[in-house]
Simulated assay, not measured.
Amino acid sequence: MTRKQRRLTLIAAALAVLGVALGLVLFAMRDSIVFFYSPTDIEAKAVAPGTRLRLGGLVAAGSVVKGEGQNVTFAVTDTNRSITVRYTGLLPDLFREGQGVVAEGVLEGPGLFRADSVLAKHDENYMPREVADSLKEQGLWQHSGKADAPAGSPTTASE
């Protein structure tokens, strides 16, 4: 082999190894690229107990039960399925029934999730995109369609 042929062979082999490595990484991450799972996703994918993940959806109406100390139990729903969430700690100020929430923790069993942290929506217009898409697919999306004006700015109704 000439020097040029050895160099081309080495480059081709390096590209092949890089391609295989990239393929393996993408294959391994195919299910974990999602920001969070909805209750329906968890059931459909048969996620094993003990798996660490993020659970997102709406806090089910009438499901918030405050226990002793900082223990709270509530249900997260995507309007198809619900999962009971147990959380110990301070809840965000904006946490309430009917609002979007993302809980990070461990799936303990069918229909039971132990959360380490809970994130609530930050204003009236925010909802995780996946939750909004799920609600739109079910025909339950109710968005006003108008953005709130910044504080202190005039609105078209007052002009």
Rank of each mutant, 00 (worst) to 15 (best):
H122R: 05
S38G: 10
T84H: 02
V72H: 09
D41A: 07
I11N: 04
A61Y: 09
V118H: 06
R30P: 08
T9K: 15
L55A: 03
Y126E: 00
T51Q: 06
G89Q: 04
L119P: 01
V106G: 01
R7W: 12
L91C: 01
R96K: 12
T156F: 14
N125D: 08
G50I: 03
G56V: 05
T2N: 15
M29W: 10
S158T: 15
Q99N: 12
R86H: 10
G109E: 08
L90W: 02
G67M: 04
P150C: 02
T73S: 12
G109P: 04
H143N: 11
A16S: 12
V118R: 02
A115D: 06
I11L: 15
Q70D: 13
R96F: 07
A46P: 00
M29T: 15
L18I: 11
R129Q: 09
T9H: 13
S153F: 13
G19A: 14
D148F: 08
F74P: 02
G62H: 08
P39Y: 06
V34F: 09
A120W: 00
A28D: 13
E124G: 11
T79S: 11
R86W: 06
E68I: 10
G23D: 06
R54S: 14
A151V: 10
G145K: 06
K4W: 08
V85M: 03
E137T: 09
T2C: 10
P150T: 01
Y37W: 09
L55P: 01
G100Y: 00
L18A: 15
